[in-house]
């Protein structure tokens, strides 16, 4: 039994890390009142840019390449998210429709560029992956050590750190208070002198940046190349994690880990005696079914920010 856990928990954490980044991004955007269905497209952009940068600059930067690639992916995806921000905040477009457009656009641009640059449907494999390492001292702890601290990706630790930082920013800083007030009651916030539009822009850009990192982490730890099916629903699963985590950063962290666990089970159930008889489809659809149940209120009340999806128009009541 312990062997099974040694085997599954590292996979869980590795597959959860991209979800955590992206889901936290979603929390920022939706807490400010902007629906971000476009997470999937932003992740695709991040995954693509991450691989592209990694392939082209691996010789220049050596072992630093994957980390720089994360940074570049963050900036490009944030830039890409500006489109969504302009449409849904300034132009008062339907945020869902704009998000759908972002998803389609992200995939189309990435694939178009891949074909243009590489002349085929997917990129080459990268040489500089995000490294795995053993955490000193902690790896020697019996039981827990090999489960959590052996051969971990640096990005996974970053992901968990980001979740806690996000919690601190959203709940313990003036900016976080403003962010939440803008998402709950923009008019009241405006009366108090908070610039609704500015806060919302910042929030959507943060969500773009984090989703970009999420995508780049996924492509540089799990697939190691980029093709049409590299990001296949991870963005939506992150969206699900955000909802299942009730729009709370730590909730999203927990949900993302949980969904990562489901994915790990789906991948490895056939090699575990206890679970070999259960078809893997159940593990595949598990996160999605759970999200629907969470939304339906069967698992405690999940409450969205009040002003979610409503563009703010000055002077309107």
């Amino acid at each position: 039994m312990l062997d099974v856990l040694y085997f599954i928990i590292p996979i869980t954490i590795a597959s959860a890390a991209p979800l955590i980044f992206t889901a936290i991004g979603g929390v920022f955007s939706e807490r400010s009142g902007v629906i971000n269905i476009g997470l999937e497209g932003l992740m695709i952009m991040g995954a693509f840019i991450g691989i592209l940068f990694n392939l082209f600059f691996a010789d220049t930067f050596g072992a630093w390449t994957p980390w720089l690639a994360l940074l570049v992916a963050m900036f490009v995806s944030a830039l890409f998210a500006t489109l969504h921000a302009v449409a849904s905040i300034s132009f008062r477009a339907d945020q869902v429709v704009s998000g759908v457009a972002i998803n389609m656009l992200g995939l189309a641009i990435a694939l178009f560029s891949v074909k243009m640059i590489f002349g085929k449907g997917q990129t080459d494999f990268i040489q500089q992956k995000i490294p795995r390492f053993n955490v000193p001292f902690l790896e020697d702890i019996p039981i827990i050590g090999p489960m959590f601290f052996k051969l971990v990706y640096g990005s996974s630790i970053m992901a968990i750190a980001v979740a806690f930082i996000a919690w601190f920013v959203i709940y313990k800083t003036p900016f976080g208070l403003r962010l939440r007030s803008v998402g709950e009651h923009p008019m009241a916030a405006d009366t108090m002198g908070i610039k609704v539009t500015k806060i919302r822009y910042i929030a959507v850009l943060i969500s773009g940046g984090l989703a970009g990192i999420g995508g780049a982490v996924y492509s540089q730890t799990i697939t190691n190349d980029f093709g049409h099916a590299t990001i296949n629903g991870q963005g939506f699963m992150a969206l699900a994690a955000m909802i299942f985590g009730k729009w709370h950063p730590l909730g999203a962290l927990g949900a993302a880990l949980f969904f990562g666990f489901a994915q790990a089970l789906a991948i490895s159930s056939s090699s575990i005696k206890l679970l070999a008889d259960i078809p893997s489809v159940y593990f595949h659809i598990f996160p999605y079914v759970l999200t629907i149940l969470a939304l339906a209120g069967f698992l405690g009340k999940a409450k969205a920010p009040k002003a979610l999806g409503k563009p703010y128009v000055k002077g309107n009541r």
Binding site: V97, S98, A101, M104, L105, A108, F112
Partner: peptide, 15 residues
């Protein structure tokens, strides 16, 4: 696909 996505985007911004 890029064109189709842009069409959706601009229709959404129609306002």
């Amino acid at each position: 696909s890029i064109i189709i996505a842009l069409v959706i985007f601009f229709v959404a911004c129609g306002y």
